[in-house]
Design a protein around this nucleic acid. Sequence first.
RNA 1: CGGGGUGUAGGUCAUCGGUAGACCGCUGCGUUUGGGACGCAGAUGUAGAGAGUUCAAUUCUCUCCACCCCGACCA
Length: 411
Amino acid sequence: MLYSKLFPKTLKQVPSGAQSLNHQLLVRAGFIHQEIAGVYTYLPLGWQVIEKISNIVRVEMNKIGGQEMLMPVLHPGENWKKTGRFKSFDTLFKLKGAGNKDLVLGPTHEEIIYPLLAEHIKSYKDLPLYLYQIQTKFRDEPRAKAGLLRTREFIMKDLYAFHTTDEERNEYYKQARDAYVKIFKDLGIPALVTKASGGTFSDLSEEFQVLTPFGEDIIFVCQKCSAAINKEIVENKKCPECGGDLKEEKAIEVGNIFPLKRAYAEVFDLSFTDKDGERRIVSAGCYGLGISRTMGAIVEIYHDDKGIIWPESVAPFQVHLVGFDLENKEVLNNAGKIYKLLQAEGVEVLFDDRAGVSAGAKFADSDLIGIPYRVVISKKTGDKLEIKKRSEKETKFVSFEEFLKIIRFSH
RNA sequence: CGGGGUGUAGGUCAUCGGUAGACCGCUGCGUUUGGGACGCAGAUGUAGAGAGUUCAAUUCUCUCCACCCCGACCA
């Protein structure tokens, strides 16, 4: 991608009202644009990051048997009335469709997937079944805040798993939990598996929490064994695992996994005929992961006073190629050649090809955007590349081949 | 939803009872060229909306709307 063509330009000033770092940096660097409270456009750079995160999640969901699909945003109000959540779900967006029909913008998809499954699941042979989607959800939060950490429209991965027995479901829960641990490791995020209450769905759930001052959850982390427990279920200040001392921390929930109770299966009659000819209710589990919130959480963790420092796995590009002295034909040709060679090697590269822009401005933009590797080509660099990792201070001069080895090795 | 705050150029803000200004950005020309360069010239505004007070309102008052912060809420 040529930087001169990239939409939009970066901003020097912090947007009015933006307090959290993810909000400030993502807006300034041109990743997101706020439309209304808690609703953002994902601009080209931002969308690249969303896609990177989504793909990491997809890989692990597919490994545990997940089949990706896409359910509608628009739901029949009727289904929500059946489960009682048309009234009880506080942040539900409701609207009227043609013929004055009640419609709902989906905040979660039990009301769609249960009736869908009820139509198709007849036998124990149809189970287990793991279905997931990555999709925009809507919740009319009374107070959106902190950039992407709390929005009214957000991108979420939700996997619904359906089983013949609770034992089978619990077995799968462990697999899903491992998959989540792997996902956050691949994303480069230190997420703590945190015990929490299950809310109305189940007695216990686990949340994946990232420590950040802008988080909204209070969790307690054991200073001895690192176990984490949500405030809502901490009774005394001692670790239930090892008895160690607990430290209170602010955190943001980026994932939540829990076994579902059978309420929805019963409402929508999601049952099957077992081997012995008996009709049984399906046992389910639900596994959510906030894709867009995770993007915000990453920025909360990885930044400095100059800008974002993306982990390599989710950066919008791997390499930020910065050209100086581009009025000089030779330098321009050389930079263009490096750009093409990197692309030919499958490297995702953003090439700052702007002429007449000062070095300082290019460095500042590069630091703000936060791509892992910066490569400078100028009249000084000759046949070498001047490289610098965004996360480090030192600059090195290396050959093209050496640079390729470096970025390959880092993966 | 309770409390507080803010709405002025594309962005960040200043101003002020007599219908607007800076900086950034943008356009043109020239000089620069390794950490957000400089000079000159230019373009860009229903001052959030409505009502009221006044000779006169962006400015004061009221209502509404939007956004932000604290709290409550957060399957």
